[in-house]
């Protein structure tokens, strides 16, 4: 039978995952709800003094986004690992890192993007000034794919384990720190009104870097965990 070209294999896999996710639409809401819930917890913990909340605002939004991304990572390979289709992908003639990229892109569209939708609401919740909201959205658009990409390496390493969830967060959170630092800093400088080109360019550099390197590491990890 005619072998699939790489791009069509990529899009096929992407479409497959999106359709699967679309069938379980309700699950797409979970990361969003978690994101809102965690963000709402902080003012309850800190107290309703607006100045305090405003100082903490960007950091809280981003830590919550980080945790929401971390929570949703597990679903990336879990279902395919259980029904064995993950092994089929590994056996395909196409480079596994491209297929992994398709899966990570699908995962990001399903879990990363919803955070993007709900972020303005949370910015208002934590009275982040509206002038900084566009920067917050921009950092989320640049940052969440990096979270999915780096997270995919951790998921690939722990996919074979029964209770890999806790270990996954231990492996992945230290690697999330640079994204957290630059994204929060970008929003903070935006609040003060200083141009944030430096932070945003570093964030996009991280995005491009992980876009190139992470799939390779994930493919190698999958090959090892499935061996």
């Amino acid at each position: 039978m005619s072998t699939l070209s790489l791009t069509s294999a990529f899009t096929l896999l992407l479409k497959r995952d999106l359709v699967l996710a679309y069938r379980r639409r309700a699950e797409m809401v979970n990361p969003m709800l978690f994101f809102v819930l965690v963000t709402a917890m902080f003012p309850l913990g800190i107290g309703n003094d607006p100045k305090l909340i405003e100082a903490v605002g960007p950091g809280v939004v981003w830590v919550a986004a980080l945790l929401a991304a971390l929570l949703s990572l597990d679903s990336m390979f879990r279902s395919d690992f259980d029904d064995g289709s993950l092994e089929q992908f590994m056996l395909s003639a196409h480079p596994v890192s491209i297929l992994v990229l398709a899966k990570v892109l699908a995962h990001w569209l399903v879990t990363g993007l919803p955070l993007f939708v709900v972020a303005p609401l949370l910015a208002v919740l934590l009275n982040v000034p509206s002038s900084a909201i566009p920067t917050l959205m921009l950092t989320l658009v640049l940052g969440t794919p990096v979270l999915s990409l780096i997270g995919s390496v951790g998921v690939a390493l722990t996919v074979g384990l029964r209770r890999g969830g806790v270990i996954l967060s231990l492996l992945v959170l230290p690697l999330y720190v640079p994204v957290l630092i630059f994204a929060t800093d970008a929003v903070k400088t935006a609040i003060v009104g200083i141009p944030t080109t430096a932070q945003l360019s570093i964030l996009s550099a991280m995005l491009v870097g992980s876009l190139v390197l992470a799939p390779m590491a994930t493919a190698a990890s999958l090959r090892i965990s499935l061996s």
């Binding site: 690697l175 590491a217 990890s221 090892i224 061996s227």
Partner: peptide, 11 residues
């Protein structure tokens, strides 16, 4: 050991 080697490299 091989999974840990990958993690060390990523680290």
């Amino acid at each position: 050991a091989r999974a840990v080697s990958i993690l060390a490299l990523v680290g």
